[in-house]
Structure formats: C-alpha cells, structure tokens
Design a protein around this nucleic acid. Structure first.
Length: 972
RNA sequence: GCGGGAGUUGCCAAGCCUGGUCAAAGGCGCAGGGCUUAGGACCCUGUCUUUUAGGAGUUCGUGGGUUCAAAUCCCACCUCCCGCACCA
C-alpha cells in the first residue's frame, strides 16, 4: 500500500481504519440531542472554563492539551450527574493581530507566504487580511471547527468575541468598578518605545524579535562648580568607595540645561533624557580633556576627587561619565593602573599616585581589593582587555549576593550589599543628589520601521494597582483556600502575588475596549480577560438578540452580576422586561462561581493570577473561583514546537490523519498535568492500534445474565470494582494520565489473565461477564476518547450514549478479597514453576504441589496478626506460639518463624491487612485451579498434596518446605 | 539570585506524594524463535551479574541519616532545564 507522503512525517498514516465517518456520526448525534447545552435546572451545576484562544493562527497540538483536559473534566463531571457548563469565547483584543494586518497592508511577503502555505488560508481571504478583524474572524472559525472536530463538549450558544459591543460595555463596567475601589491608579512608567511610530514596542514589534528590555541605573550627581557631572551606576552603594571620576578625553560632551540644573553629559545621554521626560536644552560643548584634572565634589560624602581620563568610557553608555571605584570595579582598577604606568600628556596630574582604592565591601574568598584579585586571576593587563567584562560580572554577582559593607560606609555598615544597594539609592535620591536613567540591555534595538528604539517614560499611564497590600493579602488568603492542581503550583501563585507590582492596564493602540473615563486609552488585553467567565452566563441572551447594546448600561451589569438596583427602574430605563432581567440574574447566580479554570502554566504569572485578583475585587466572596488546574506544554518528538523547526502540527491536520480520539489520548497519556507532554509518532500509532483492537473486541460479547460462579469470575468482578475506585480517585485529582493508564492498559493484563484462565478451562460461558466488564470500561473511557467509546458502546449492544451513561460507582461489597488472594497465589505459584524450569532447563513430565500443614497455617495467622500489631521480635513470637497447643509444632521447624516473618514483612500493608481479614485460605482448593493452567501451558499433569498427608507422593522430601502462600513444588 | 521542575537499569520512560507485591511497568533497541517468496509487517521468548530448584549479589545523580525494610522519607552536595513581566 503506498504511503501518502506529506511534508511532515508525522502526518503519514497507514489508514488502517477510517475514523472520520465514525466521528461524524456521533458528533451529529450529540448535536441533534443538544447534549452539551446547559441551562439552569435543579441539579448541582459545574462550571468549567478554559482560557479562550487568541485567533491569530490555527491551533496546534499544543493548544489542544488544555482544552482536552478541560473537556475530559467536563465530560467526567457530566457523567457524574452534574449540570456542566463548558463554554468558549474568542479573544480578539491585543496587538499582534493588528501588527499582522499592518504587515499585510505593507505587502509583507514572508507573512503572506506563511498564510498561504503554512496556514493554508484561501487567497481571497488573505486579501481581506489588511483588516485585523478579518484575520481574527478567519482563525476564529478555523479554531472553532477544530474544537468541534476534537469532540469538545462545548455549549456553543454562549460563544462571543471580545470586540462584541456588549462585551466592551461589560469590560467598561469592570474598569469603573475597579476605579471606584481605588484599584486603578495613574503614574509614570518606562517602556521600550519607537520614536518614529510614537508607540511602545514589544518583542514582536522589533527587527529580529528582540525583547526591548532595559535596566534601571542610578545617576549620581557630582558637583563641578555650578555644573552637575552625572555618572550612571548599577551599584549606588559604592559611592563610599569612589576615588575619582572617569571621562573620555576624546568625547565631545554637551553642556545642557536639564530641568533646573546644568549638566555635562554625552549627547547620546541628552537624547535618552528627553524621552525620560526631562527638559533638556543644549547650551554648549566641552571636550572631555578639558575636564581632566579638575575636581568634583561627591554628594553625601562632601569630599572632592579628581576627574581622570579613561578610554574604556563610552559616550553611548550611561551619561558618558563614569564614577571610579577601583577597589570593587575591575575596569576602574585597571584604568588607574594604566594611567599610573603611562602618564603621557597627563604627567602634570597632581597626586595621582596618592589615589588608593577604598575598600568598602567584605566578601568571603576575596581580599582587601577584590578588583585586583579578579584582574590577577584572569591575567588582565590593560583596560581594553575584553576579559574585564567577565571580571566585572563575576565580582558583581559575588559581592551582591555574598558581600557585606564595611565600617567606612556610615549607617550602612554591616548590611548586605543586596539590601544596602536599595537603601543607598533611596537615600541619595531623597536628598536630590541622584536621578534614574533607563538603559536598553541590547543596543541597538530596532523597530520594524527601522528606527532605533529608546526607553520612554510614559506619563499619566493607567495602572491596576496589584501592589495594593490589602488586595494582595486578600488574594493570598484566597489562594491558600482554593483548590489548586497540581498542588506544587500553589507556592508559585503566592510568589507571583508577592512580586506583582502596578501593572499598566491601558495602551494607546490595539483592538479592545476604550477606557470609559479616558477614551484615548484602550484597555490592555490581559486586563480585559480576567472576569469574562461571568459574561458566558448572559452571552446566550445576547446571541439570541434578547438584549441589545443600546439597552445596556452599567446598571444592567450591577443588577445581573451584583444583584444591585431596583429591577423595575432598570427595566424601564433599559427597556428589558423585569422577568428577563431576573432570569439573567438567576442564571448568573446559578452558574457562578467558576468551579474549575484550566490553563497552561505559562499563564500562572499573569492571567491566572489577575483572574483571582479581579474576581476578588469585583464579586462577593461566594462568587470567587473555586479551582484552578494548570498543565504543562506539549513537545513534539521530545523537542519544543516552533515555527523555525517546522514541527508545529496543526490540530485539524492531525485529526484528519489520526482521528480525534487518538490525539486526545496521546496528549493525555504522555504526561501528568505539570510535565511536558511528548507527542510522537509511535505513541499515536500505538494508541490507534489499541483502540482498533478494543473496537474489534467489543463486537464479540453480548449481554446476558450469568451468575458469577467460577473463581475467576468473582476475581475479574472484584478487579473491576478496584479499577473503578482507583480511576475515579485519579480523575478527581485530575491525574488523567494515571486514570487512563489504569483503564486502558493496566486492566488489560487482568482481562488477559481472565481469558487465559477461561481458555485453560475450556469455558464458553464467560461472554456475559466480559460484556459487563467491557461495557463498564467503555463508560470510563468515554470522557477521554468520546467518539470511539460511543462506537464501542453501540457495538456492545448497549442503548443510549456512552457519554450520557452514569459514571460507575465502586461497590466495596463486590470486592472479594479471598478471590484476589487466591488468584495471586495461582500466579505466583505458576511463576515459581516457570522459574524452576528455566533454571534447571529441564523438560517437565509431572508436577507435584504441596500445601503447608495446618499448624503452619495457624501459626501464620498468629504471626501475621502479631506483625500487624507491630511485634516483630522473633523470640517472643516463638514463645507465644509454643505456648499454644495448636501451634506447638513450631518446635519442629524453628526456622519457619523467621522465614514467615520475612515473608510478611516483604508484603505491603494492604496485602497484609487483606490476608488478615480473610483469614485462612483453603490453598488446596485454590491451587486446584492450577491443574488446567499447567495442562494448558506444559501439557502435563499436576497433583496436589497437603504436607500433612501421610500417603503423599514425595520422593525428594520437598513437602516440608511448604509455607502458607508459598507451596512446595516438585518438578520431574 | 528568586521561584519551579528534573537526574531510574543501552536509549526513552513509569514508579516517589501514600516506604514493603521493585531487579523495578511500558516502548525503542538488541538476541533467539515462529510466520512468510521476502519484509523496515505481525506473533512468541529473552535482555544487571550469577545460579541445573523457585535462590544469592550489586543497582535508581553523590554522600550521609531515619527504619525491621529506602528508587520512594529527611539532611547536605553536584548537574541539567524553565519563568522573572506590561507580552498573548
């Protein structure tokens, strides 16, 4: 059979079976029966949501993970009897789509080609893509189609996009609520900025996708007569160690009026300052060498030091002036050394040789002058040696995390560098002797328009005040009460809450909702997606046209979501019948709070945390979210998916090739929640095979009432109950991999064993039992693999749908512990026989089994109960056994106690308890089942004797070694 | 640095939360056999060392500890991966 070769090897399929028609059939049935539409009723509800997608590309396997997890959760809860609401919306707001539209307008070849070949967008659609909304619309429909194909049990009547007018009104309402609570504040805020576009830039706005990150520097103002000579530093605490200032003699500095002061700075610095809202007016120029040899006064310290020349000083770095701390900065130390060696034209510099490094930081592993230690260690001999960077970095890190300030640092003495850095900065800033400068980490960063980016201090920026201590406290305490899965993430949440500061919540362009009180701003897209789950409860009314945008005002949301206001008055104002208002309010109150929110772990430090913050700020406590479930990402053949690797599998393509169920299972089974799931060809292939085999199997057994007569029947029925119990617990903890493992694979070995037993006995009456077992198993598979489960369910001859069947409830009373022990005994004995044959390499003719004598069984029970009660002292056990006439025979075989205690100790707590509970097992009877197995396996006969049997056949005197649960074996 | 995760037998990977059924699932690879014109298809068997009686020995990053018992719990150390923002 020829293989359909496509670009991606993953998309090869051997097409053993056509899944598509099966999927289509059941999908239509679900739809026709409105299985996933949820309306308030008398049942308990369960509201499960997932972060809605941003439609700027087709979804791939990675996106599929979170949605699949949520869908399994929804289906499981639905089968467990809950009225489950699982809705979906689409997040249009944000900047990337806008950027894409702009690139289409500019006829960007790469992007258009990507649309064409990678995303397979039809030509006529691409032409519309100059309009960002068209892009969003297109991928919206694409993603939705994929979700339907994946079998997600979504109530599509409640769908919306974030640019729907009523949604915008809702977000406006949200922000007014936040502002009323004092949680929206205004302030300045540094951003990466394109001076040409007059816009903030983020990573995907720059050439080469460079993140425009920046660092905050402290600028210390040195006084030179009436001028200020500012030097930028990352280490303000080293002000105590300054011995001089450095300028580059070749640089032409600017004299400029900066606000009310006159500064001497490089011209690059002047430019930077302008974007930081400084009023900078150039007055004149001054060559660096003019400054050399002059003295400046150090603020706070009050003493004076010289300005010296250094070539390592660059005009585009900081202010173009550098403060010199030779004891702790390798550059400074080396520059000073260089100068002393080669005075040249500066021979007249006074007292140069008197300049001594001032050590201000004590760090373990370093001497008085750490900078000199570093330089000697790395063998540096001049200030242009590139190793100086490395030396600086290492020393900075060592001193920052391990250093302490010395006595000569005033009130900061003995403080750690990490602490002192902040305190000193604050101290100098407060006295007006310092300022702040931001410097891009990578230089230059260019905007897509080609202009060089700068750091701009935005004025009057709006912030959500996530630093508000009361708000933080509230969030902390709620996080500690919430259900968070997996549990490890709880700490991470708490940590995020701690470090979260004010967050800019509005920007000046992009799709989105206008800030209600300042229409120049658009609400930023991570802030307009934090309480939208409430909107699902009214979205169906919007979609049905029952409420219109002109009818909506804040009073509507106040009423529906906060139960505030007079219904009659609102009804009159908004022209909505009071019953309708009441109905919507009831609906919100029915479904809220969100019971489970699913999301990828990348949203923990932002969306999920904001989600909690905002719910707590806006809604009363009874509507705060109950549970968050976080999952990891998906790898492709062990590697991260990325466009450049070309290993992104579009979800819909994968469905076409492998079928939705195989993909669902492959994603779920390869990893537990937080781990990265690895998606690969073999895994999907294996699962497909498995499902096909199971499907074939389903047609074999028909329902019939058969009593559980045989030992193996009771056993498989017991194992089924144990499976139900274990799988249910696993799903409740969202350990879906574990649950699937039990249902799909582990239980298989039980079925195999059962079939082997039945076959050995030549039974033909087991179909009814297997039918029951397999049907229950299909029900349990249904949330994971809904389509194939429906198909199996129907082939098994069951009525209705697997997805509406009730989730089985484990029945303890159906678990027959004795049958489980008996089967274990069979298996271990068979294993032992196999082992002996393997080691001796003999071909067996005859097997004889000896069960332990009664006194041993009695003694075993005694020892067992004594070990369970914690007594494992062999001496006392023997004494108590001898004192009892039933077990006094122990004297004949003192070794027996030691061996038995070891036997018992090497078993699990569960197994011990179960053995203790069921008491004495009739081993002769249990092992009689072995006969058919041995016959089947080796084609030979088997005889069983009791050790106590006087007439037994025992030529090799083996019988005496028999122990309970460990019969003696003779093979000839 | 802070926060999180990981280190298992040739490779990938389960087990760890809840200590004992762990020489440790499963897959790949490898070896032997079956089936076959053939197979990169499928099925069976084996795959730490040792052993002609179900046994013994040495293993789960390193070093300690707790326990009758440690891959699993505790402590210390080493190595690797991810996140640290105004971006969805």
């Amino acid at each position: 059979m020829p293989l359909l070769l496509q670009n991606n090897p993953f998309l090869e399929s051997d097409k053993i079976m056509e899944w598509a028609p099966i999927e289509e059939k059941w999908r239509q049935r679900w739809q026709a029966e409105k299985q996933f539409e949820s309306n308030p009723d008398a049942r308990k509800k369960f509201f499960v949501t997932v972060a809605y997608p941003y439609p700027n590309s087709p979804q791939h396997i990675g996106h599929g993970r979170t949605y699949t997890l949520a869908d399994v959760h929804a289906r499981f809860m639905r089968m467990s009897g809950y009225n489950v609401l699982f809705p979906m919306g689409f997040h249009y707001t944000g900047t990337p789509i806008l950027g894409m539209a702009r690139r289409v307008q500019e006829n960007d070849k790469d992007l258009i080609e990507a649309f064409r070949t990678l995303y397979k967008v039809p030509e006529e659609k691409i032409r519309e893509f100059a309009d960002p909304v068209k892009i969003a619309d297109y991928f919206h429909q694409e993603i939705k189609a994929g979700m339907i194909e994946m079998g997600y049990s979504i109530d599509w009547r409640r769908e919306f996009t974030t640019i729907d007018p009523i949604y915008n009104q809702f977000i406006g309402w949200q922000f007014k609520k936040l502002k009323e609570s004092g949680l929206v504040i205004q302030g300045t805020h540094p951003v990466g900025w394109c001076p040409k576009d007059q816009n903030p830039v983020s990573q995907h706005d720059t050439l080469g996708d460079i993140e425009p990150s920046f660092t905050e520097y402290t600028v210390i103002k040195f006084k030179y007569g009436s001028y200020v000579l500012p030097a930028a530093t990352l280490r303000p605490e080293t002000i105590f160690g300054i011995t001089n200032l450095w300028v580059n003699p070749k640089v032409n500095y600017e004299v400029a009026k900066v606000d009310d002061e006159e500064w001497i700075i490089s011209s690059e610095c002047a430019t930077k300052l302008r974007f930081l809202n400084k009023k900078v007016t150039k007055i004149g120029n001054m060559l660096g060498e003019e400054l050399v040899g002059k003295k400046i006064r150090i603020p706070e310290r009050g003493d004076e030091v010289f300005i010296l020349p250094a070539t390592f000083v660059e005009s585009d770095n900081g202010t173009g002036i550098v403060m010199s701390v030779p004891a702790h900065a390798p550059f400074d130390y080396q520059a000073l050394e260089d100068l002393k060696k080669n005075m040249g034209e500066y021979a007249n510099l006074p007292s140069l040789f008197e300049i001594k490094p001032i050590s201000i930081i004590q760090t373990d592993g370093y001497g008085e002058i750490p900078a000199r230690d570093m330089i000697e260690k790395l063998g540096i001999d001049n200030q242009n040696n590139p190793k100086l960077e490395e030396a600086t970095k290492e020393l900075y890190s060592k001193e920052f995390y391990g250093g302490k300030l010395r006595q000569n640092t005033d009130k900061f003495s003995q403080k750690s560098v990490a602490v002192a850095k902040e305190e000193v900065k604050k101290w100098i800033l407060e006295s007006g002797n310092a300022d702040i400068l931001y410097e891009l980490n990578e230089n230059p960063v260019r905007c897509r328009c080609g202009a060089e980016c700068v750091v701009k201090l935005l004025d009057k920026q709006w912030f959500l005040d996530y630093s508000n201590p009361e708000w933080k406290e509230k969030v902390h305490s709620w996080i500690n009460q919430m259900q968070i899965l997996p549990e490890e993430i709880r700490n991470e949440f708490n940590h995020v809450v701690d470090w979260l500061k004010e967050r800019a919540c509005a920007r000046q362009h992009g799709l989105g909702t206008k800030l209600p009180w300042d229409k120049n701003w658009i609400i930023e897209s991570l802030s307009d997606s934090v309480i939208y789950m409430a909107y699902y409860t009214i979205a169906e009314y919007v979609n049905a046209g029952e409420i219109k945008k002109e009818h909506i005002s804040d009073s509507f949301f106040d009423y529906a979501f906060l139960d505030k206001g007079d219904v009659q008055k609102i009804s009159t104002d908004l022209k909505i019948p009071p019953e309708k208002l009441e109905e919507m309010k009831k609906e919100f109150q029915y479904y809220y709070p969100v019971n489970a929110r699913h999301s990828g772990r990348d949203l923990v430090p932002n969306h999920l945390t904001f989600f909690i913050f905002n719910h707590l700020a806006i809604f009363p406590k009874k509507y705060w979210p109950e549970e968050i479930v976080v999952n990891g990402s998906v790898l492709m053949n062990g590697k991260k998916m990325s466009k450049s690797m070309g290993n992104i599998i579009p979800l819909r393509d994968a469905i076409k090739t492998h079928g939705a169920d195989s993909i669902r299972l492959a994603i779920l089974i390869s990893a537990e929640l937080l781990q990265d799931a690895d998606f690969n060809q073999e895994a999907v292939h294996g699962i497909k095979n498995k499902l096909e085999n199971m499907l074939e199997e389903s047609a074999k057994y028909k329902a019939s009432e058969e009593p559980l007569l045989a030992q193996e029947d009771r056993w498989i029925a017991s194992r089924l109950q144990q499976l139900i119990a274990r799988a249910t617990i696993s799903i409740q903890k969202m350990r879906l991999r574990e649950a699937l493992h039990y249902v799909l694979y582990e239980f298989d070995s039980d079925i195999q064993w059962y079939l082997r037993r039945a076959k050995a006995k030549n039974r033909d009456s087991q179909a009814g039992i297997l039918h029951k077992v397999l049907s229950t198993r299909v029900v349990m598979l249904s949330p994971f693999a809904p389509y194939v489960s429906e198909e199996m369910w129907s082939r098994l001859g069951n009525h209705g749908l697997a997805s509406t069947a009730s989730w089985p409830i484990a029945n303890e009373t159906e678990i027959d512990l004795a049958s489980i022990q008996s089967e274990d005994l069979l298996r271990t004995t068979l294993e032992d026989i196999k082992n002996i044959i393997k080691v001796t390499k003999m071909s067996p003719k005859k097997i004889t089994i000896y069960t332990a004598a009664q006194w041993k069984t009695k003694a075993y029970q005694k020892i067992l109960s004594q070990v369970i009660s914690g007594d494992i002292n062999i001496g006392t056990i023997i004494k108590s056994l001898i004192s009892n006439s039933e077990t006094a025979d122990i004297k004949k075989d003192p070794d027996f106690v030691k061996k038995t205690v070891n036997d018992i100790l090497s078993e699990s707590q569960d197994s011990r308890d179960s053995k203790n509970k069921i008491g004495i097992v009739n081993e002769t009877m249990a092992l009689s089942e072995l006969e058919s197995l041995v016959k089947d396996e080796y084609g030979i006969g088997l005889q069983i004797f009791s050790e106590a049997d006087q007439a037994k056949y025992d030529p090799k005197n083996k019988a005496r070694t028999a122990r309970p649960y460990k019969p003696a074996i003779l093979i000839e």
